[in-house]
Design a binder for these strands. Structure first.
Lengths: 223, 223
DNA sequence: TGATTTCCGTTGCACCTGCAACAAGGAGGC
DNA sequence: GCCTCCTTGTTGCAGGTGCAACGGAAATCA
């Protein structure tokens, strides 16, 4: 039945928990696996997100519907990703988002209340689950915060330079960005061509060096 | 000694826990209260944020120092606010930020590891503490996400309209914004005068109605 | 009441940036 | 090789926006 325990072993939520412990945990919290056909919803706006969702396989998109009926896709998730965990933890009674399967998918739902209330059994890994959960939320928090600092800047140059200096701090000086130009432009929330233009200017001024997605803050002279 | 338990009762981290339980909890996790003089640091960049900080009284500012030495103030916190909780939960070994007291302050530090490992005593409220913690992180997450959606928009008009429609969804139609113009401009990350200009245009077009910080999406005709 | 400060709207101006279109180079498929 | 698709750089243009400055209205306070 719970043949999906092995697959879960690698995702952040279950890090540090052995396969057999995961299996025990799943029955302990009353995990339920469901299949979601393409075009169907794993979670509908308005429903209570009282569980943590995990994608076993497939592809789903998280979207929000405006009052005007416009649908905005917030993100896409695949195997190993979680969903609804923030809503569940925040205790939001009605989901503001939809989770729609764009292909045949299978997801597990862990009832949030039973994640919280540690079972009577002496399952120490239950504590680990909570710890992992806190870690996931906190790291997502830091990620959001980091991008927000960038989006607070008003010019492309400021956003780019802040991004570059942050990355340089973390990865050392010549560093490889995990984006192509399009991705970087999206991350900085600016137009791609305008970004290219600004990169060109900075390069010409000798402030940065660029080759494909490898950046260096050392000017030409500095080598 | 732990005369500060009553003050803690009202902050989100301890919601649903009685005063006496809080006192027990504090000794249980080994909470330590420290006084921080004006100009001193409660947390220095590079140090291990292995605790959750709570401000009992006073005022502190969280700042980040660039490689160039420029200091950027990220936020200010006061009585009842928490700090370092995200870093602790994320397991960040070295704090990227400073927490500086701008006036004589007193803070409590709860060792994170001991928050996680529930004490041997049957303290059920320990679970509540974890639940509260998850709630805090998750809500902060949603707050960040919400603003991020706004900052993703490229024009003032789009940002403002998105903000207004979100607020209208939550508060009903004529709603009072918790900002003055300056604050709203900061939240939307745009220039104040440019925001005023755009508000003027929208009003003239009949798309919105505004009086001070009360907004309505119903056009003039709609009443 | 009068003075001071804060908040808000307005405007002129420069310029940054989004947008669209195009070209060059590279990667991969047949 | 040849073709196609993807990525990146470039450019003209229009318009949105930051910036600075000013003036009036409202609020706070003595």
């Amino acid at each position: 039945m719970q043949t999906y325990a092995p697959a879960l072993q690698r995702i952040p939520l279950f890090q540090g928990i052995t396969e057999s412990e995961i299996a025990a945990l799943l029955t302990c919290v009353g995990a339920a696996a469901v299949t979601v056909a393409k075009g169907e919803f794993a979670l509908i706006a308005g429903d209570a997100p009282d569980y943590v969702g995990i994608v076993l396989h497939g592809q789903l998109e998280i979207s929000r519907v405006d009052a005007d009926g416009n649908r905005a896709i917030l993100s896409k998730i695949g195997a190993g990703d979680c969903f609804a965990e923030t809503l569940a933890c925040a205790g939001i009674p009605h989901s503001p988002v939809n989770v729609l399967a764009t292909e045949l998918s299978r997801v597990v739902k862990l009832p949030y209340q039973r994640i919280l209330t540690s079972c009577g059994n002496a399952c120490a890994f239950h504590g680990r689950l909570l710890s992992n959960m806190l870690g996931i939320l906190a790291r997502k928090n830091l990620t959001l915060q980091q991008r927000m600092e960038i989006l607070d800047k008003k010019t492309i140059r400021e956003r780019l330079m802040l991004y570059l200096s942050r990355q340089t701090e973390q990865q050392g000086d010549p560093f490889r960005a995990p984006f192509d130009r399009n991705g970087l432009a999206e991350y900085l929330a600016v137009d791609r061509s305008a970004l290219s233009r600004e990169i060109g200017r900075l390069r010409e001024e000798g402030a940065i060096r660029v080759e494909r997605n490898v950046f260096s803050l050392r000017g030409k002279a500095g080598q």
